[in-house]
Amino acid sequence: MVQGSPFTVQKLFMPGTGPRWLPYGVLILIVAAAPLVFSGRMSYYLSILSLAGIYAVVVIGLNMLMGYAGQISLGHAAFFAIGAYTSGILSTRYGLSPILCALPAVAAAGSVAVLIGIPTLKLKEHYLAMATLGFGIIMYTILRADPGSMTGGIQGMPNIPPLQILGHAADSDRAQYTIVWSTVILVFLFSTNILESRFGRALMAIHKSEVCAAVLGINVFGHKLQVFVLSALYAGFAGFLYAHCSPLKYLNPDDVAHVILSIKFVTMVVIGGMGNRWGALCGAVGLTVLPEVLRLMSSLLHGISSTDIEMACYGLILIMVMILSTRTRKRLLPIPAENTLTQHPIRQ
């Protein structure tokens, strides 16, 4: 398990020994308690938490790619958008029951990830980030231009049906919250299982030194591709949730495919401490909730807009992360291992 990241919530809950299920118990308790706190007129806050949960699914996946395997993607909003729009199009234009859209949404994101991953994962370090950034921009442009008259272009796609569970439409804030957060917990357990295995260890090995991993018998490209596709599957699934389980049930390229959203996902991973699963969860919730908290507080600060404070907060958080991470000698971004071999081109 990766330790030593700036905001180690994990350390708070797991000081060395002790029952491993304790943090999960606390998580389930908090998730279960939120609807009791935010009931009645306050149920609006549950919808914010639902959005945080949806983002958390993306961030849990992206953390595997960035925190574990050390590969940076600045295009994950694109996979989020593919999931959301696939599900949106199938349910509105083809009348498919929303719950059946999950599989095609995830599959679409996954297949695009395979096509994008094969050429781009051969690139190293920041080139991968650039390539995925480019892909994200292309996706955004396509969705806005709407060449096939499917996505609604800049007008967006309204009236997406809510999920039907046992014949009931889940369109209350509370129902959406319950669906989103139960899936978040499942997804979280699922990825914990995946990472605490030889696959997770191989990813950490690749992060530290690709050459070293390769000579130990790890198929570096194969693993990078697998984790890239896996993280895209997560993002696609989150997109599906966003289409049917968010209060708006409305898709717009600016909300789901914008580069800023990709960068937000990356920031959430970084704030959580790269490679820290609990941190990723907290990062996603923290950054989604922050603007709401600031909006509440702005009534106290006359004359200053909440968006200005929000920006200042992001800056402050990033500075804090920088300072703390250098102090703990933890690398914020993957730097090639100090290996004499990296001077020469290395075959994969």
Binding site: S197, R198, A205, L230
Partner: peptide, 28 residues
């Protein structure tokens, strides 16, 4: 170039990687 985020045991287990046959899904 040891994997410094891991224990000694986990480092050595990375070396066993090639002998293993189970996939992500059995881990999940």
């Amino acid at each position: 170039s040891l994997f410094d985020t891991m224990t000694v045991l986990d480092n050595v287990k990375v070396g066993c990687h090639g002998q293993a046959r189970t996939h992500i899904f059995s881990a999940a």
